[in-house]
Design a protein around this nucleic acid. Sequence first.
RNA 1: GGACGCUUAGCUCAGCUGGUUAGAGCGCUUCGUUUACACCGAAGAGGUCAUAGGUUCGAAUCCUAUAGCGUCCACCA
Length: 766
Amino acid sequence: MHSDFLKPYDHLQEKDVYSSWEKSGYFSPEKLQTLKSKSPKKPSSIGNWKLEIDNFCIVMPPANANGSLHVGHAVMVAVEDLMVRYWRMRGKKTLWLPGADHAGFETQVVFEKKLEKEGTSRFEILQKEHGRQELYKRIWDFTQENKSHMEHQVRQLGASCDWTRETFTLDPAVVSTVYDTFKKLYDDGLVYRATRIVNWCTKHQTSLSDLEVAWEQRTDKLYLVQYKRADGHGHITVATTRPETIPGDVAIAVHPDDKRFASWVGMQVINPITGNAMPVIADKAVDKDFGTGALKITPAHDPVDFEVGQRHKLEAIKTIDFNGRFNMLAGPFAGMKVAEAREEAVKILEKNGALERMEEYTHQVGVCYKCKNTIEPMILPQWFIDLTSPAAKKKIVQPAINAVKKGTIKIFPAFQEKIFFHWMNNIRDWNISRQIVWGIPIPAWFRKTKAGIISNDQFPISNKDAKEEVYIGKEKPKGDGWIQETDVFDTWFSSGQWPFATLLAQDAAHSKFETQNSKLKRSDFKEFYPTSVMETGYDILFFWVARMIMLGLYRTGTVPFKTVYLHGLVRDKDKQKMSKSKGNVVDPLGVVEQYGADALRMALIVGNSAGQDVAYDEDKVRGYRNFSNKLWNIARFVISHAEKERDVEKVTLTPEDKKLLLQCAVVKKKVAVNIEKYRFSQAAEEAYHYVWHTFADKIIESKKEILNKEAPSITDVKKQVSARRALYELLVQSISMLHPFMPFVTEGIYQRLPAKDKDFLMIEEW
RNA sequence: GGACGCUUAGCUCAGCUGGUUAGAGCGCUUCGUUUACACCGAAGAGGUCAUAGGUUCGAAUCCUAUAGCGUCCACCA
């Protein structure tokens, strides 16, 4: 027996196994294919069923290069690797393409926290000369460090992905693809730049998309404020939660059908803080039944008011600056922060006798999903992807909906399709501008053609007469006066193109190489697009999956993947969400050190069905660690007996032993079917149960008597030989069917089999 | 205000298109074992499948309500 076939099983061998896999080159599809064509394998004992497609491709969700892996990544690796390994063993040309995401805003947030700890800030660096470049460079180095750390971690989890194809969202080829998409959208009139009210985070000083706004329930005050009529006859009362924005009021709106206020429309009222006169207008956005039925209009600081303002051509008076501080236009509140100004507003209103009363009021407040600071709606010129015009519906939105409706893309679990449809049917324009440095710069240039200031300024609305020329392109256009856009893309705009961007990036890299060696022609895009499966967490269905479907169809005319598998989120033992602040975060690599990647992977797969959250339990991991050891000892036993039989290949099996092989084949087929139907938990349990409770507990136990028989008769010897052969075959089948789930221990056993012409279990026939 | 998911053994969960005594892991109880494995083996206890109706020859499984838990979406100031 192998000298290192020791007990108990030592999962520390995992590292050596991984590096031998990687060295073999079998993670790359072409090496695999060469091998298969050289020595076509004989049909396996369970019979081959025909493959409907001959390649299999997963593009790995690129991990954010701003920290280390968490258990969610471990689930992702476990599930994807199991599919990839299964299909590779089934003989498909298999590609699993790894990557990393620069993760724009998220990464900058993490980096800014780091800066805070160092006693500085992003804004301090930006004030320096070339501050922007310096900050970018520092974040770049930070992500590169994280990236290599994460690659190491993904290896430890056993991912059989092709590292030679690893792609980063900031690789030049990816950026180039992203620019092409932007240009195409622009040329098709589906991207526009407009001054709109956007979600502004005053801490991070960037706008956010609607998806990046979290909602918190808060109990505040509802202030009922009186606006006197300019002619001195009576007043109209409005309800507001934000009296501090009154200096920015430009009108009072009532519902057009509201009889109570019919006579008021067109009259002037007096702003109770500034004393300015403003009109009463009628607009259907007003809810007659809420508050007093009259709404104050502050176009610069409220999304509804902004729309009303646009409809009625009202001025937007911007009284709050990017820091969330009131400016000169805010009169008495100038220099104050929101909370302070609110108190001051109450004082002033009370003094003026304009505050009718206050009520307790519970409502939802939008906050930055990262720092939880209240979102300050802010007017800014931003780039948007049009998803609401008829043209956009036809060219972008509807094709995506249809693909899922028709089943060109299947989503597991199926109920997520409903959620997808609902979101798609109510989709809004997508703000893709971010006022941060970490990201792909928006390739736009401006030049003013008339008096006025560039609209990337504090008071865009009041300068709406300024005419400017816009140029979209990678390089600065010819001519004088061009100023480059400073905003960068929302990170999801680039990752939304990930399936085709990564495959095209391979082609770009390869075509350079090809000129030197024309034999190596290949096109990953042609060969692997659309990809087979997109596997990720259901929490990014809108952020990522929906965008990939839309942009994939838009750019390539083809869906980016045929199947979406959404795994559940890992929670702690008590089903609580894992978070650093709760201190219940599980470090997957710590678990790997202690119990082995195989054990962790099994624990994350069994009991985890699509879309349903899983509770992480260390006892469960320990249980599968025990299983690794069990399997190892099965192998020790079987191999020690098989070695007595030098000639295991040429043996006639007894009818009973033939039956055992058949029974195993049935189980293996069930496992296969479950994998193909995305019922991974069942597949894993099936294999586990067979190996432990049938193979080990029943079959091996029943063979011990005959195997240990002293002075066997001739028939006994025949039985012994048959038993050794059968057990050996069952062991081979067992490690093969467990390999997608527990790659390390199974490969470790395979390498110790007393067989000739071994290569790797990883590429053995399933 | 909408929508979705969950509710099955002490705990965590399977149970696909409805069909014999409802399953697994962990835990628990009892017993066993120096020769594949104590990271083990054998035996066992434990469930009115959330509640109430309905469809059916037959329902944990389909339908309708209700309750509890959870999640997502939504511009009522």
